[in-house]
């Protein structure tokens, strides 16, 4: 009789320990942990909730359909707006107060079109210095439809803006 008492005490200590563990665990382990695997499922929501910086070309085309139409007729049809104009999420959210700056063609065009041996041969490339000297690209080319003759030559007011 006395011997079994020892076992009961031991069992009580274990039960108490287990209860303590379960209580602490439920307190510290987030409820979403283990929902899909060995991780906190709510972390997916955290990542998904981050701020969108690039608006996406669909958002641009909603208002700037005239530019989109011009662009879609030319060689730059597959170049999305933000590839040249940079991220415009803020402008898309608040078009009136956030005005995007006009890109500088002197820096912008050569980003893609300056000749480099590693570029695919079929990609149109120029050595800017030999091609036009210091003349700005948009003196002759309309950036949204760049092949000469495909679009009306840029008006001077447009170039200077």
């Amino acid at each position: 009789m006395k011997d079994s008492e020892h076992l009961i005490r031991l069992a009580a200590v274990f039960a108490g320990g287990l209860l303590f563990f379960v209580v602490i665990r439920s307190f510290f382990v987030p409820s979403s942990f283990g929902l899909y695997g060995h991780y906190r499922a709510d972390a997916i929501k955290d990542v998904a909730a981050l701020q969108v910086v690039h608006a996406g070309h669909e958002a641009c085309e909603g208002c700037h359909s005239d530019v989109a139409d011009l662009k879609n007729k030319g060689k730059h049809a597959h170049v999305n707006c933000e590839a040249c104009h940079g991220p415009q999420g803020q402008h898309a959210n608040d078009p009136m107060s956030v005005k995007p700056p006009l890109p500088d063609p002197a820096k912008l065009c050569v980003t893609c079109h300056e000749a480099n041996a590693a570029k695919p041969r079929s990609f149109p490339q120029i050595v800017a210095k030999d091609h036009a000297g210091d003349v700005a690209c948009n003196t002759c080319h309309v950036p949204h439809n760049p092949r000469i003759g495909d679009a009306p030559a840029p008006a001077h007011s447009e170039v200077k803006k």
């Binding site: 990542v47 981050l50 969108v52 690039h54 996406g56 170049v79 590839a83 990609f123």
Partner: peptide, 18 residues
């Protein structure tokens, strides 16, 4: 992930000109 779950493409794909 914050873009593709909203139906947008990734920023790199959005800006890739080719």
């Amino acid at each position: 992930y914050h873009r593709i779950t909203k139906g947008l493409t990734t920023a790199c794909c959005e800006e890739c000109p080719t």
